[in-house]
Design a protein around this nucleic acid. Structure first.
Ligand SMILES: [Zn+2]
Ligand SMILES: [Zn+2]
Ligand SMILES: [Zn+2]
Ligand SMILES: [Zn+2]
Lengths: 160, 160
DNA sequence: CCAGGCAACGTTATATCATTACATGGAGCG
DNA sequence: CGCTCCATGTAATGATATAACGTTGCCTGG
């Protein structure tokens, strides 16, 4: 559960833990966690929110990295493919995964006010969507589950 | 439930029923169901699939309608706003609603082979997403629930 | 050593999706 | 009529994403 995303917390723990897990996963699976890929993930780990590809690109540039669009998109493709990051379809943007390497079906809670995003997990075959699919023999391969709304903090702020 | 989307059926019934319901809804709610809006919905009703804005635009042009991008996007904005159509975020494309006017939270089953799309309904507050939201006091305003996979017909075709 | 294969990266150009901004026109109304 | 409102026409631009092709660096079989 990603409730931590909306709360004040020691975020360096999130960052360090993720990088360690990704490092270990790449070691185990013989994946090349190259400097560019590492840099992109590091940028995305700065905050629990979704990052546009061109926003990442700007960051790469500002850090001296040569950066045409494919540079960012290729790094993101790698990160998404191996589940170190996810694409938020609603936002056309990308977010670092909070459970890197684990094969999972993520669901997201997106606060439209503070823009923070929490990652939860689902069991695609269960629930209403799974039931609807089963009823008609539809085979689910990938799910997009995203909720937009207000986090507790932002809701409290607006109702006062 | 939208299982009918993947089956052979008398599709003129879908089209006629939808147009009647939209007509009635607009009458009741004093909405202007203008020729362009009607034309766009008619195009989308041709098939149970998602249509790109520029695809609709091309169709409008081929039918003699002047058509710059805002023409299509404005009609789509109207249709989506009043729940006569939905946007499929995964595809950056739009689909005619099968329950026009009813206030509902749609979910979609998208066949990656035949590209047909079925619309099901969910109760956002229920299920895993609703539980995750409730657990952290997140207030859901809108949900994006989409599944990509293979419909029964396409799956049967590939396993033979 | 060195040729060949391969994966990542550099770079240009282009494709695809969406919006801003401003002008025009017609319906309703005092 | 003069006004407002809403829909539409149109040009320009912005935002997101990919195609295509060349280069580099590493590994490996010969
Ligand atoms: Zn954190
Ligand atoms: Zn918030
Ligand atoms: Zn039909
Ligand atoms: Zn199919």
């Amino acid at each position: 559960m990603g409730s931590i995303s909306f709360e004040i917390h020691d975020h360096s723990v999130c960052t360090d833990k993720t990088m360690q897990e990704v490092d270990a996963y790449c070691e185990t699976h013989k994946l090349q966690f190259t400097p560019i890929r590492r840099k992109v993930l590091t940028i995305m780990l700065e905050e629990h929110r979704a990052w546009g590809a061109y926003e990442i690109l700007d960051r790469l540039r500002s850090e001296g990295q040569s950066a045409q669009p494919p540079v960012a998109y290729r790094a993101l493709e790698f990160l998404v493919k191996h589940r170190f990051a996810h694409k938020i379809e609603r936002l056309n943007a990308f977010i670092a995964c909070t459970h890197p390497g684990q094969h999972h079906a993520p669901a997201f809670l997106i606060c439209r006010s503070c823009e923070k995003v929490a990652e939860a997990h689902t069991e695609p075959s269960s629930g209403e969507l799974g039931a609807a699919a089963e009823a008609i023999g539809f085979h689910i391969e990938r799910t997009v589950i995203e909720a937009v709304g207000l986090c507790a903090t932002c809701r409290d702020a607006t109702t006062q």
